[in-house]
Computed example of a mutant assay.
Amino acid sequence: MRVAVITLVAGRHRHLALQQRGLAASDLAPDHYVVITLDDPGAADVLQNQLPAPDVLPLSWEGRQLPLAAARNAGARRALDNNADLLVFLDVDCVPGSTLLSRYAQTARHGALLCGTVAYLPPPPPEGYRLGALPDLASPHPGRPIPADDEVLTGGEHNLFWSLSFAVTASTWRLIGGFCERYAGYGGEDTDFARVAKSRDVDLWWVGGAPAHHQHHPVSRPPVEHLDDILRNGAVYRERWGSWPMTGWLHEFARLGLVHHDPVTDDWSRCAPWARARHGDK
């Protein structure tokens, strides 16, 4: 089985370097390491003269929204053009555990969407993370199933899918059809991807022994800097599937007086400035 690893980068070079080191320490070397750089020419310098040797695919984008769906599709096309049998997607923040690739390869089947566990790491020390210490720094996220290392849990809930770390065979990718490129910026494209997978009878499998370690970076809760992305992508999802994704964030935005929900039309919209000022203390 020819295994391709696909990641996107727009900054976070320190994270990218540790991911590459993690892949180099894997018990199964990737046959192809596709790195899509989104207006980030400096990323190639981070990877230069290191293993696994990267196949850097530069992409330019316009506007303020990162084209995450389109970039993942471009990475998959590059991997498939190089005869990949298994596509493994890792966010740039994610460092693969030593057995992640081998477990994905062992369990891969047509018609299965494979997800390993992800552990969210604490902030690194000043000298950075030590690769060998990562498994002891954090447990897998409790919001997802945590199978034993030799276990695969089939029949998973598709609404729990996350794109931080997942794998599909080439034939399964073609069956799903990739990510919908109407999504741009933060949120929605991964939920849509899983919904399409479910509609095409692609099962969700939680794969034990395929851990990824998510490197720390500051986040906002709720992610107010992505409010417009969430509203726009949420509306795309509603048009396609009849319901809103990311409702937890939407309700948090409403609590802050940033958005309004119309219960009659089920529309979410940005509040006018006067409404935000009026409701901002609630």
Rank of each mutant, 00 (worst) to 15 (best):
D262K: 08
L47C: 03
A43F: 01
W268K: 07
G234L: 12
R240W: 06
W244G: 14
Q20A: 14
D267S: 14
A76C: 10
H158C: 02
L113S: 02
A84G: 00
L90C: 06
Y183W: 10
T7R: 03
Q48A: 13
L47N: 01
W241H: 15
A79E: 01
V168H: 03
L131G: 07
V202D: 03
L87P: 01
S243A: 14
V5M: 04
H251D: 13
A167K: 01
D266I: 13
D229R: 02
D149Y: 14
R278E: 07
N83Y: 01
A212Y: 02
K198G: 15
R72K: 13
A17W: 09
F193C: 10
G22W: 03
D31H: 09
H217G: 03
P147E: 07
E181D: 11
Q19W: 07
T191H: 10
S171L: 08
L100R: 07
R12I: 02
A254P: 08
S165M: 12
R232V: 11
D31P: 01
R14N: 08
E252R: 15
T154R: 11
E252Y: 06
P147C: 05
G132K: 06
V259P: 08
M1E: 10
A210V: 02
A170T: 06
L59A: 06
P58V: 04
D93H: 05
T191C: 09
P54C: 00
L80E: 06
L59G: 03
V88E: 02
Y129D: 09
Q50I: 03
L38K: 07
T172G: 04
D281Q: 10
P52S: 06
M246T: 13
E252S: 15
W249F: 15
Q20W: 07
T107C: 11
P135F: 07
L47M: 07
G111R: 11
Q19G: 02
H216Y: 15
L68C: 12
T37S: 12
H141C: 15
G132R: 08
L256N: 08
G111N: 09
A84I: 03
G187T: 14
H214W: 14
H110S: 12
L153S: 07
P223E: 14
R78Q: 00
L16H: 05
A69F: 00
W268C: 09
L134H: 04
V168C: 05
L113P: 00
T247W: 04
G156K: 04
G132D: 13
N233L: 08
H158G: 08
P67C: 11
N73V: 05
A235S: 14
G75I: 04
R221K: 13
A197M: 09
L227Q: 13
L114R: 10
V219D: 12
Y33L: 10
H158D: 09
P58L: 02
L121H: 03
P135A: 05
D203G: 05
A84T: 01
H216D: 15
E189K: 07
F193S: 04
